[in-house]
């Protein structure tokens, strides 16, 4: 193994990550096969006749044993081929990467912009709350963010939509975006979902920041710093924050992965073409290759963000870098 603990951590995480991805792909694959119906019966619905169902199954290879289908998919995946959506047909090939790729881009855009706003605001407000603990303004902030996280997110979405979209007409209620749009329109179109998501994830991060800082601030060495006569800013940013980063970054990482994998409700409410909706549609249609691709993206998101959080926690705390 390597001397550098950070490098070591990254490498072990990559190995574990790959193993987890394989496990996730297998679990998803076999779980979907437990659901009633398959692509043939779901896409035809009421108009399914045994003959046509059989013909679709034959052409998609759905009659082959489960295990050999999984191995086939796995071999394709390992050679970098995500395969074709089951909805492809002779003359029109719908590649999974084209279906998922586009949607992933939109999801990343939404998550990215939300994170750019929500993370700094919550960390700053969290520190502010920690410093002004017990004051009126802290209570207002604390309880209002708690209220917004306690409401179901679709409720927050509809309330914002009703006031800002329908009543006042300031923001568009339909977040239908595409890359050809001028960026000003793009920003306008995604502002309502961004606002909703910001409100949904802020409380978690704000409260964790506040709690972590308060925890550190009660320790003797902070009192020492105070006694030395250091300024409050220096105490918080130089002495307290470095020791509080680990839990904060963990919560941030958790919320960022949520922004990519967990926002299907918001996507539906605002009609945003994100990847969550794609996965739900694909599960409903039993379009296994698309489901697999989405599941892997989701799993990879979690793994990457968690590794990042651990890495940041380790690097920010020299004690963790050199374990005894």
């Amino acid at each position: 193994m390597f001397k550098n603990p950070a490098l070591n951590l990254v490498l072990t995480r990559i190995v574990f990550g790959v193993v987890s991805l394989l496990a996730v792909s297998a679990i998803i694959f076999f779980t979907i096969s437990l659901l009633p119906g398959d692509f043939a019966s779901e896409v035809l619905g009421q108009s399914a006749t045994p003959e046509v169902v059989e013909s679709i199954r034959r052409q998609l290879g759905l009659n082959e044993p489960l295990l050999s289908r999984y191995i086939q998919w796995l071999l394709g995946f390992l050679s970098g081929d995500l395969g074709l959506s089951y909805a492809s047909s002779d003359g029109q090939f719908i590649t999974v990467s084209s279906v998922v790729g586009d949607r992933l881009g939109y999801s990343l855009l939404l998550a990215g912009i939300t994170a750019l706003i929500a993370v700094p605001v919550s960390v700053v407000l969290g520190i502010f709350c920690a410093v002004h603990r017990g004051k009126f303004i802290e209570r207002v902030l604390n309880s209002s963010t708690l209220a917004s996280i306690s409401m179901p997110e679709f409720m927050v979405a509809y309330v914002l939509m009703f006031f800002l979209g329908v009543q006042l007409g300031w923001l568009p209620t339909l977040s239908k975006v595409d890359w050809q749009m001028p960026w000003t329109e793009l920003v306008l179109r995604i502002s309502l979902p961004v606002l909703t998501l910001t409100l949904t994830i802020m409380a978690h991060m704000l409260r964790m920041t506040r709690a972590a800082i308060i925890g550190v601030m009660s320790q003797p060495y902070i009192e020492m710093a105070r006694c030395k006569g250091l300024s409050l800013g220096r105490i918080v940013f130089k002495h307290a924050l470095p020791n509080a980063w680990a839990p904060i970054v963990n919560v941030i990482a958790f919320n960022l992965s949520y922004l990519i994998v967990g926002v299907v409700v918001i996507e539906t409410v605002f009609n945003y073409p994100g990847i969550g909706q794609t996965m739900v549609d694909a599960v409903r249609a039993r379009d296994v290759p698309v489901v697999q691709a989405c599941a892997l993206i989701f799993a990879a998101t979690y793994i990457v963000f968690n590794t990042f959080a651990d890495l940041t926690a380790t690097l920010s705390n020299p004690r963790l870098l050199y374990p005894r």
């Binding site: 959506s85 909805a87 492809s88 073409p273 909706q277 794609t278 549609d281 694909a282 249609a285 698309v290």
Partner: peptide, 10 residues
């Protein structure tokens, strides 16, 4: 949905 086919049979 994102996987709607152009094949009129489907």
């Amino acid at each position: 949905s994102a996987t709607d086919s152009l094949d009129p049979g489907l």
